Computed example of a mutant assay.
Amino acid sequence: MKLFNPIKTGAVFAMLFTSGMMITDASALTVYTAGPGSLAKSLATGYEKQTGVKVNIFQATTGKVMARLEAEQANPQADVLISASWDTAEELQQRGWLLPYQSNNAAKVPAEFKTDHYVAQGISALGIVWNTKSGTPEPKEWADLTTDAFKDRVTTPDPSLSGASLDLLIGLQNSMGDRAWQLFGKLKDNGMAIAGPNAQALTPVLQGAKAAVFGAVDYVTYASIQQGEAVKVIFPASGTVVAPRPMMILKSSQHAADAQAFIDYVLSEEGQKAVADAWLMPARTDVGAQRPLISDLNILPAQAGGSADRGSVLQRFAALFSKS
């Protein structure tokens, strides 16, 4: 699967560097991250206190982060990348862009969430997000969103823009076979709306315009609940998928030792508690959180047979929802 679209470098730099999102410091460690901005700041602050090394942060969506990396190939700036997509790490490793590193603090990270070149910072899961004031019955399973009570009242992230959403489609297909596509067809017939990225699917549910999200990334909703929003995260007993958020060191880094120390810090007990405070599941199994963990969920296999297979699932889903 090709992650990067052809982009004119000059246009990308003009867009990104006029945004004022990051002030560079040549002596500092530069971290590009897709994820909660508050978490990035917390981890940078903790690392700076521990090491005295300053951290420059560029925080944006995965697409914008990847576009910036692509545009900077001739003059790389990032030392560490934290992505919201495991596919990103796999693609960059295949390109030969990553520096191998295994932190001693990764000992308690499950094997499926680490390799020689990257390791999960934390993990999110996909579920149903339901507005408790919507007047609809609380859904327990994915299929509940196909009932008359949810007619025209369900959103879902666009799987072409959300790797985690595509993982859910693949996980359900792997678990249910053709019955998964029957489910998707019923959701389509029931008026499920394909939104943009994850936040665009969640917003109308938070506002009460829609009743539920099919396949919402959970940590954003947990933060909304903490702020008083009338929504609930529901993980169907039939299963769901998780989305590990990989951290990696760019081979082009001029601060490799500092980058390794940053990975060590994020995987330390202190760093993992900061991850938990952002409502993500810590990557380490010995650090708790005030939310369901991997052991509490029925995890579906989200592996596909390569990028072509992922593309075929995406194309089939798009074709289904393009039918009148």
Rank of each mutant, 00 (worst) to 15 (best):
S85I: 11
A107Q: 04
G46Q: 13
K54L: 02
P76H: 06
A71H: 13
V55Y: 08
V109H: 00
Y118K: 06
V80G: 07
D87C: 11
K54C: 01
G63S: 08
V53W: 03
V53Q: 08
Q50N: 15
K49L: 11
A74Q: 15
I82Q: 00
A67E: 08
Q102E: 07
T61A: 09
P100Q: 06
A89D: 09
Y101N: 07
N104Y: 05
D79I: 02
D87H: 15
Q50V: 09
V109L: 01
A111T: 02
P100T: 07
E90F: 12
G46S: 10
G96V: 11
W86N: 10
L69M: 15
N75T: 14
Y118F: 09
M66K: 09
A74S: 15
H117K: 06
T88K: 14
A71R: 12
V53M: 06
D87W: 15
L92G: 04
E91C: 10
A111Y: 01
E70T: 07
L98A: 13
Y101Q: 06
S103N: 05
I82K: 00
W86F: 10
D116C: 02
K108H: 05
V65Y: 04
R68S: 14
L99K: 15
E72M: 07
V65S: 04
G63Q: 06
A67G: 08
F113G: 01
K54M: 05
E72W: 02
V109R: 00
T51I: 02
G52F: 12
Q94F: 12
E70Y: 09
I57R: 08
R95I: 08
P110C: 02
D79R: 01
V65W: 06
L98C: 12
Y101E: 09
A78V: 07
N105I: 11
T51Y: 00
D79Q: 03
G96Y: 08
Q77S: 13
A89F: 00
A107I: 03
T45E: 14
G52A: 13
Q77E: 09
Y118T: 07
F58D: 09
R95W: 12
W86R: 10
L69E: 13
L99S: 15
K54I: 10
V65G: 03
Q94G: 12
Y101C: 09
L81G: 02
A74C: 11
A78Y: 05
D79V: 03
G63H: 05
P110S: 02
L69T: 12
E112I: 01
E48G: 07
G52C: 13
N56Q: 05
N75C: 13
P110N: 03
T115G: 02
A89N: 11
T45S: 15
E112K: 01
P76K: 03
G46F: 11
W86K: 10
F113V: 01
T62G: 08
